[in-house]
C-alpha cells in the first residue's frame, strides 16, 4: 500500500504535466488488474478485454449523451452492459489456452466491426461525441486533477479487493485450476463456474474502465479500442508481472507514461505495446514486479548481513 501512497502523491511531485498519461494509466489500470486476475492467476489469457471495455464505454456514453442520464447511472449502466456481455460470452472460458486467446482476440475484432456497422447507434467510424462532463454525487470531477484522484482511487480500491479475493478460497481455487484442472475438480472445485466467475469479474472491471475512459476522453471511436487496448492490457500484465497484484498497474504505467514523455510519434507509440510484449515475453516473463522485489530483497539482505 506504500506504492499506493506514492502514486497518489505523484502529481505533487512531478507536476501536472504527468496527469493526462497517469489518468489514462489509472483508468485502464482498472481493466489491467482484472486481466491480472483472469490471465495471471486463473491462467485464462484473454486478448479481448478491450472489446468488453468498448461495450462499457459506448454504453455509458450512449446513456450520458442520448438519454441524458446522470453520471452515476451511466457508469453503472456501462459496467452492467460489460458484465452482461461477459456473462453471455462466458462459455468461451471453457476453451483451452491457445483457442481461448484467439477466440477472445476474434471477439475484440467482432466488437470493432459491429461498432462500425451500427453507425446509427455508435457514430460509426466517425466516432461518438456528446458525453457530458463527469459529476459524481454532486462533485464536479471534470478537472484533470480530480479525475486523476478518482481513477487512481478506484484502481487502488480494485487492487485491494483483488488482494482479498485472491487470498481467499476463490483465489486458491483459481491457482489450483491454473496448475492442473483435474486436481481442482477432484478437490471439489467447480472449474467451469470458477472460470466463468473470473471471466465475469474481469469483464466488469474492463467495462468500468471503458466507461470511465468515455467520460475522460469525451470522444470514442471504434479504432481506439478494442484491439489496441486488448494488446495494451495483456502487454501490461506481462510487462508488470502477471501474478503480483500491483503488477498490471506497474506495467500499464510503463506502457502509457513512458511514450508521452519520450515524445514518440503516433506510430511509434502504437508500436510500443507490442514491442514491450515481445521483449518481456521473450526475456522477462515474470515481469517487472517480481524482479524488483527480488532485487529489493537482495539489497535488504546484504544490508542486514553487513549489520550483523
Amino acid at each position: 500500500m506504500a506504492a499506493g501512497v506514492i502514486i497518489l502523491l505523484l502529481p505533487v511531485v512531478l507536476g501536472h504535466g504527468v496527469l493526462p498519461s497517469m489518468i489514462l494509466a489509472g483508468t485502464w489500470g482498472v481493466a489491467a488488474v482484472g486481466l491480472g486476475l483472469l490471465a495471471g492467476r486463473a491462467g485464462l489469457v484473454s486478448l479481448g478485454q478491450g472489446g468488453i471495455a468498448a461495450v462499457g464505454a459506448y454504453a455509458a456514453a450512449y446513456a450520458s449523451a442520448r438519454w441524458a442520464w446522470p453520471a452515476e447511472a451511466a457508469l453503472a449502466f456501462g459496467t452492467f452492459a460489460g458484465v452482461a456481455t461477459a456473462v453471455v460470452t462466458s462459455p468461451i472460458c471453457r476453451l483451452s489456452g491457445f483457442y481461448l486467446a484467439t477466440a477472445t482476440l476474434t471477439l475484440a475484432v467482432i466488437v470493432q466491426r459491429l461498432l462500425v456497422a451500427y453507425s446509427s447507434l455508435t457514430g460509426g467510424a466517425n466516432g461518438f461525441v456528446g458525453i457530458r462532463p463527469l459529476t459524481l454525487l454532486g462533485f464536479d470531477v471534470s478537472t484533470e486533477l480530480r479525475f486523476f484522484y478518482l481513477v487512481w482511487g478506484i484502481a487502488l480500491l480494485v487492487v485491494a479487493l483483488n488482494v482479498n479475493l485472491l487470498r481467499s478460497r476463490f483465489g486458491r481455487a483459481l491457482d489450483t485450476i491454473h496448475a492442473h484442472e483435474p486436481t481442482a475438480a477432484a478437490a471439489g472445485i467447480n472449474v467451469a463456474r470458477h472460470k466463468a466467475a473470473a471471466w465475469v469479474i474481469s469483464g466488469g472491471y474492463a467495462a468500468l474502465a471503458g466507461a470511465l475512459y468515455a467520460y475522460y476522453n469525451q470522444y470514442l471511436s471504434p479504432d481506439q479500442f478494442p484491439l489496441p487496448r486488448s494488446i495494451e492490457l495483456i502487454a501490461a500484465v506481462v510487462v508488470g508481472g502477471a501474478v503480483a497484484p500491483l503488477g498490471p498497474l506497474v506495467g500499464l504505467v510503463a506502457l502509457i507514461v513512458l511514450p508521452t514523455h519520450l515524445n514518440l510519434g503516433k506510430h511509434l507509440t502504437a508500436m510500443l505495446a507490442p514491442a514491450l510484449l515481445v521483449i518481456f515475453a521473450s526475456f522477462f516473463p515474470r515481469g517487472i514486479v517480481p524482479h524488483v522485489r527480488s532485487f529489493a530483497d537482495r539489497v535488504l539482505q546484504r544490508r542486514a548481513g553487513a549489520d550483523a
Partner: peptide, 13 residues
C-alpha cells in the same frame, strides 16, 4: 503461450 504472444506482438509490430 509466451511464444504465441511474441508472434502476435511481432505481427502487430
Amino acid at each position: 503461450m509466451s511464444e504465441v504472444l511474441v508472434l502476435l506482438g511481432l505481427a502487430l509490430l
